[in-house]
């Protein structure tokens, strides 16, 4: 997709302000500063060179030192009054500030230096947005449900490219230990997971951070692995059993937050979802949560499994419930 004219305009204005403060900057360094290629920097400088105030005679134009430029070094000699850095627009300030605030959830995974940078960046952006900072209309909480020790170990291993030993409880509540090379910590509004290369499986795996009981940074360096680009997406597993659940309308969130294979609308706001189930315990968990909205489950053994688990649990509660309310 070609760059939008407004984005290029903002960068070119940013370059003038930057070059006003920094003399004789190599093209490569300008490129690194603005996150673009050296070719793009040269295209931007060429455009800046022919812009200016109406009349567009030599004295009206933004100007650079031509002999330095031939050496690949940019020196601004005339800024035409555009050398002060442009303030943030109201939506820009809000978007960046809300994102920065959401990063607070990552604090346990940051070392002291990064945490300090987060604090000072937040303070400076808040100062830069002024009044807009008070009433930010967007609020995001990233769910990094790791214990502080686990988050710190993950952060250290990622920053230092080290191997991790995880004690992990899977969705079936089975604890195991495995060594992994961490790739990235994906933190989201729903939950967070560590994408890592499992050495035992010799394949990429996702580990929900709230199920990592213990993480130990090992002395070994992490190796490079061929992690697929779409590794972050959740895809229904075609090998799983096909289960169809009919739900009342207020369980709509299920269709919105669980990887369903298909959804069908029914009269009265009810709907059906088809799920591919690899781990029966995962489905049992879901059905226990939404039991009150479940109208039907196929195949029937799935409903039996969940109901049996629920009755066993009620039995466990019996001593707490007293004779009149206890039932199973």
């Amino acid at each position: 997709m070609p760059e939008r004219a407004s984005d290029r305009l903002v960068r070119m204005l940013g370059m003038i302000a930057y070059l006003e403060r920094h003399d004789d900057v190599p093209v490569e360094q300008v490129a690194a500063q603005f996150g673009v290629t050296p070719e793009q920097v040269m295209a931007d400088v060429d455009t800046l060179w022919v812009t200016g105030t109406p009349g567009y005679l030599p004295d009206d134009l933004i100007d650079f030192d031509a002999s330095s430029y031939e050496q690949g070094v940019v020196r601004l000699t005339e800024g035409r009054g555009m050398t002060r850095p442009l303030r943030l627009g109201p939506r820009e300030g809000v978007a960046l500030l809300a994102a920065l605030r959401s990063l607070a959830a990552l604090r346990p995974a940051l070392d002291a230096q990064s945490a300090a940078a987060l604090d000072s960046a937040l303070a400076k952006v808040q100062a830069a947005t002024g009044d807009a900072a008070a009433g930010v209309p967007v609020e995001v909480v990233l769910q990094v449900d790791a214990t502080p020790a686990v988050a710190a170990a993950i952060g250290t291993a990622l920053a230092g490219r080290r191997r991790l030993r995880l004690r992990y409880v899977d969705a079936s509540d089975v604890l195991s230990e495995r060594d992994v090379d961490p790739v990235r910590l994906v933190s989201q509004d729903e939950h967070s997971y560590l994408l890592a290369w499992s050495l035992a499986a010799d394949a990429e795996r996702k580990f929900r951070v709230d199920r990592i009981v213990e993480a130990t940074v090992l002395a070994d360096a992490a190796s490079e692995h061929p992690v697929s680009d779409d590794a972050d997406g959740f895809h229904p597993d075609a090998s799983g059993e096909l289960v169809t659940v009919r739900l009342a309308g207020r369980a709509r969130w299920v269709a919105e937050s669980v990887p369903v294979e298909s959804t069908r609308e029914l009269p009265d706001g009810a709907f059906e979802v088809d799920l591919r189930v690899v781990q029966p315990s995962w489905l049992r968990h879901l059905l226990l949560q939404v039991a009150e909205e479940v109208l039907d489950v196929r195949p029937p053994h799935v409903a039996q499994d969940t109901a049996t688990a629920a009755r066993a649990a009620l039995e466990a509660y019996a001593p707490l419930l007293g004779p009149t309310t206890g039932e199973a």
């Binding site: 940013g14 403060r21 850095p85 442009l86 820009e92 995974a109 940078a117 920053a159 910590l185 933190s187």
Partner: peptide
């Protein structure tokens, strides 16, 4: 982009490597 204009040096990525919020 606007704030990069008042940055002392290009951004350092190593401190926050591997984080994907």
């Amino acid at each position: 982009t606007k704030l990069r204009a008042v940055g002392e040096a290009p951004e350092a990525h190593d401190l926050v490597a591997g984080l994907a919020p």
